[in-house]
Nucleic acid binder design. Structure first.
Lengths: 178, 178
DNA sequence: TATTTGACATGATAATCATCATATGAAATC
DNA sequence: GATTTCATATGATGATTATCATGTCAAATA
């Protein structure tokens, strides 16, 4: 009963591959596109093995969302440098709204990828979405200082920035030119 | 062969009900949720009758998108009143970003409802989405004057307004408070 | 060496859904 | 009145997909 050895490590590695694959699929194909069989194939396993790791597709979706944002938040938002609040907002917007981001959804922002689908999901997924959004808003206002408390004004600005960014990237992906 | 009478009118009425129903479902449940059987039931028909009106689900989706925006664009955007450009933008944003709009997706903006799904759809639907978006941008800049040509600056502002609005309404629907 | 354990694979099942073949019935036309 | 036409209905069919029951195999343990 106390393995402690390679077994646990192997399973953890499998889980990592599943999370990576599902996070990619979630961002590229959305909630309805992140099919279990495809995710497992991407992870080098078969669909049956799925239930050794997750209880349901819903569980996977939540884990994938968290995993995607865990990897990306620091990359997109980062620390607060030597700059004014307005400069920071502009810098973040410019970093977010790039052609590269538009054209590589699999590595992009998961909050944008599932924005409209999240609104129609069950409570659990919506809660996960809301949590991740809160974390991103906090990071915009305070960088990685978890204990800091943003002002209401900054928070409102951050919400507007997120709305503009998510709407912008969604529109850019939906049309051909631009 | 020249009926001209009740038959054609009845079919046209059926089509209207199908369009109304599918436009509602599209906005409320998105592209993947707008299931043919449900739409037809809403319209008071059975699923088999669908193919007397449309060749495929894709055709319906495009028609539903157009229908939804045909009814709503004037309501949301309207004419250019006695106001500056900046005032106009603010007025439109405030009209769009209301609790009522957030809570009644079935009557809301279809461009927002399917934003992320449109990006992953086939070319035909993306083209329809792009066309409708262009029309809305034009209406923001020029009201209903079809022949008017907006300046590049106004067009950029209109794009930003749409991005902010669509992102804002999507986020508002995905979270619980706010 | 024999047994147990647990991750993973195979295959089945049931639900959902788009699509289509065929039937019906009423109005229009002959 | 007989026939045609066509919108709609009924009932497959096949594809996709989540879920689960059962089998397998390698490593750990006894």
């Amino acid at each position: 009963m106390r393995d402690m050895a390679t077994r646990i490590k192997l399973k953890a590695e499998s889980l990592q591959r599943i999370l990576d694959a599902s996070a990619s699929r979630l961002r590229q194909e959305g909630l309805s596109g992140a099919v279990i069989a495809n995710v497992m194939r991407d992870a080098g396993l078969t669909h049956g093995a799925f239930y050794a790791h997750f209880a349901s597709k819903g569980e996977l979706a939540m884990a994938a969302l968290r995993h995607a944002l865990l990897g990306n938040r620091r990359r997109w938002i980062g620390e607060w440098k030597h700059e004014s609040w307005r400069q920071r907002l502009q810098r973040l917007a410019r970093r977010y709204l790039t052609k590269a981001h538009r054209d590589k959804p699999a590595e992009g922002c998961a909050l944008a990828a599932v924005a409209t689908e999240a609104a129609r999901s069950d409570t659990a997924f919506r809660q996960a979405y809301e949590d991740e959004l809160q974390k991103s808003l906090h990071a915009i206002c305070c960088g990685s200082k978890a204990e800091a408390i943003p002002t209401d004004e900054h928070l409102d600005d951050a919400i507007a920035l997120m709305a503009l960014s998510i709407g912008g990237i969604s529109l850019a992906r939906a049309v051909s030119d631009d």
